[in-house]
Computed example of a mutant assay.
Amino acid sequence: MVKAVICGYYGKGNAGDEALLASLLQMLPQHVVPLVLSAEPVRTRRRYRVQTCDRMSAWLVWRALRQADALILGGGSLFQDATSWRSPLYYAGIVGLAQGMGLKTIAWGQGIGPLQRRFVRNLTRRAFSRCTAVSVRDVASAELLRQWQVNCTLAPDPVWALQEKPAKHLADLPAPRVAVTLRSHRALTPPRLDTIVKALIAFQKATDTCILLIPFQQSQDRAIAERIQPQLPDSSHIVDWEDPRELKGIYNGVEMVIGMRFHALLMASAAACRCFAISYDPKVTQFMQDFEVPGWELQALPEDAQEMTQAWLEHYANGEALTAAQIEAYRDRCLLHQEFLAEAFRENSY
């Protein structure tokens, strides 16, 4: 058996990162025993039935690494300084510690950047250049690594292959359903949010849909959902989630998604659901381009609520989702991340 410490943005209540962890555990070879660094180790242990420890306890992290054979840097945008420059410092420190101990270090399903500060860029380059193996989820990250002369495996985001679970109580909610996922952001100003709310009210009146407000991260999304719901004229629900696999299952019962969150758009696309994006981040913009998803940049939102409503109504009536063949193709390509792990953890490589 091989012991591997898994490091990522886990236990923070972010559905995208939890979905990445669930995908990683699903793809991990059977002979690899994981220990997950988490902000809420008890909850993570109960949810995934794995060993855990507190990600912010230097002693516990050091001890976990001392007892491990490998470190897996879990998927997502861990090395980026658009949100905070402190985050990449943490991950670079964990990677450097593991590499100093002689552990095999594997970066899996990564999306690198934005890297706006030179010292963060240098830290990131150093961390990846010393990894045993690297897989990434987008072309821009692969190109950056190529510039740094770091070999990598490129495949779609691992959550494409996440096995969903049936969503509890979804059938009890009126149909048709439209999901909305907004998050706090400095560019989502009160006037812009007011415009979105006015547009949603008009959209719901025109379509007679049940609006599902889905906070992907309670600390950033819940307050917005609670502000919107009382203003909606007809059926609406704030949908809380516990298991990201069940969250992915919700989109099987949704007609359209209006979303800012990258993984909300991905989960919806994987369920053959129509998507309309509001982009706050390059990864969302890239998703829009790759999958021909209509939408707006957050800073370029229409000021006229009627214009916004009309765009949503047009897409609701005539927009197209991915075909079954397209979805299957992305899931198959995504499994390159699983093959990557199998190769990285070949039993005779220890």
Rank of each mutant, 00 (worst) to 15 (best):
K3C: 08
G11K: 03
S23C: 07
Q26W: 15
Q30T: 14
E40D: 14
T44S: 14
R47P: 02
M56K: 11
R66F: 06
I72L: 11
I72P: 06
G74Q: 05
F79T: 07
D81H: 05
S87R: 08
Y91H: 09
G100C: 08
K104M: 12
T105D: 12
Q110R: 11
G113D: 12
F119R: 14
R130T: 14
D138F: 03
S141I: 05
A142R: 14
L144E: 04
C152A: 07
L154N: 00
P156Q: 02
L162N: 02
E164M: 14
A167C: 03
A167E: 01
L173Q: 07
P174N: 11
A175N: 10
A175H: 12
R177N: 09
V178E: 00
L182Q: 00
A187N: 11
T195A: 09
T195Y: 03
F203Y: 13
C210F: 07
L212S: 14
F216Q: 06
F216S: 08
Q220P: 04
A223Y: 06
V239K: 09
V239P: 05
E246T: 10
M256N: 04
H263K: 05
L265D: 06
L266N: 01
L266V: 14
M267H: 14
S269E: 05
S269H: 00
F276W: 13
D290V: 09
D290G: 07
P294D: 09
P294E: 01
G295E: 02
Q299K: 15
A300M: 14
T309I: 01
W312I: 10
G319N: 03
G319M: 02
L322D: 02
A325G: 00
A325F: 00
Q326S: 13
Q326W: 00
I327E: 11
E328W: 08
L335A: 02
A344T: 02
